[in-house]
């Protein structure tokens, strides 16, 4: 019962300003896709559109077997959110109710979806290396950051959702806990045959878990493809700059180079032309006049010129 997701020509606005503009992306059945971008790139807004959240000005978010999230009314959205699409929110470790035990919150979730049996939480928690009885009887302050993150994943999947969205799932965690959570994401994804989207600013996280990657900048997807291919041969100058800016553990230290300039905010994204041109080392005249089209998974005027 796999479900893929097709996002087509999606524009999501805050007021008049598009945080996501004309984005098309396909999440194939049973794959993990990484969505990488800096703050303000629109990655969380795009992820929320999978829940039908946000002011969708145009385009569609079609989930196989569920329908177009952008056209659903409130009641229909309420029924599918959580039940078909599991969402682990940014800072999930801080988004639990401090006044209720995890078990009580689980019962609330079940009640709001008219589900009576939530015993599925037990094997799920056990699968993630937790003691279900202890966790369900705990308040959030009694759990560590990594445990709370796993509780977030349990809430997302306990109603048997088949599309899983994780927004910055490891950001506040240290390395060993991060590696552990990523391992869990890989295992749960494979066990349940999910379609997973993982949103992050960390190229390393994508490299560890995702088979495909989409790179966002200024509300656009500028490049996508297989993770290994994009990391080994990035074609968009932003992707290349981002990967070059990662400090390495071996080899000459100065291989890593800072990317000049600053990422745009919602108010400073240029309305015409390429959104990356202000920071681009290979910009041309056409870049300020025309927005590049997505051709062969890259949106850059110069890609034919610079591809090696």
């Amino acid at each position: 019962m796999n479900m893929g997701v097709t996002i087509a020509g999606l524009t999501v606005t805050y007021g008049d300003l598009p945080a996501v503009k004309d984005v098309s992306l396909r999440l194939e059945d049973g794959t993990i896709t990484g969505l990488v971008g800096e703050s303000g790139s629109g990655k969380s807004t795009l992820a929320l559109s999978l829940l039908g959240h946000g002011n969708i000005a145009s385009g569609s978010v079609f989930i196989d077997g569920v329908g177009d999230m952008s056209k659903m009314d409130k009641g229909a959205l309420r029924a599918v959110r959580g039940a078909k699409i599991g969402y682990v929110f940014q800072a999930a470790q801080n988004s639990l109710n401090p006044l209720l035990t995890v078990g009580k919150q689980l019962l609330d979730l079940a009640k709001s979806h008219g589900v009576r049996d939530v015993r599925g939480a037990h094997p799920l928690l056990r699968r993630m290396g937790l003691d279900p009885d202890r966790v369900l009887n705990s308040y959030q302050h009694e759990l560590s950051g990594g445990m709370r993150q796993r509780v977030g994943i349990m809430f997302a999947l306990v109603l048997n959702a088949h599309v899983l969205v994780l927004d910055e799932p490891t950001t506040a965690l240290d390395m060993i806990t991060q590696a552990n959570i990523l391992q869990i994401v890989r295992e749960v994804h494979a066990d349940r045959g999910l379609t997973t989207l993982i949103v992050t600013h960390d190229v390393g996280v994508v490299a560890e878990v995702a088979s495909r990657v989409a790179v966002m900048y200024g509300g656009r997807i500028v490049e996508c493809g297989s993770t290994k291919e994009v990391l080994a041969n990035p074609r968009h100058p932003y992707t290349r700059g981002l990967i070059n800016a990662i400090p390495r553990l071996t080899g000459p230290v100065d291989v890593a180079k800072p990317l000049p300039g600053t990422p745009p905010t919602l108010g400073t994204i240029p309305a015409v032309g390429c959104v990356f041109r202000a920071r681009c080392p290979i910009r041309m005249d056409v870049c300020s006049a025309q927005e590049p089209e997505m051709i062969d998974d890259v949106a850059c005027h110069a890609v034919g010129v610079t591809a090696k």
Binding site: M175, A207, E208, K228, L231, A232, L249
Partner: peptide, 13 residues
């Protein structure tokens, strides 16, 4: 060794 092993690997690179 555990700490360093946990650093994400840039598969492809």
């Amino acid at each position: 060794q555990c700490l360093l092993s946990a650093i994400p690997v840039l598969h492809g690179l």
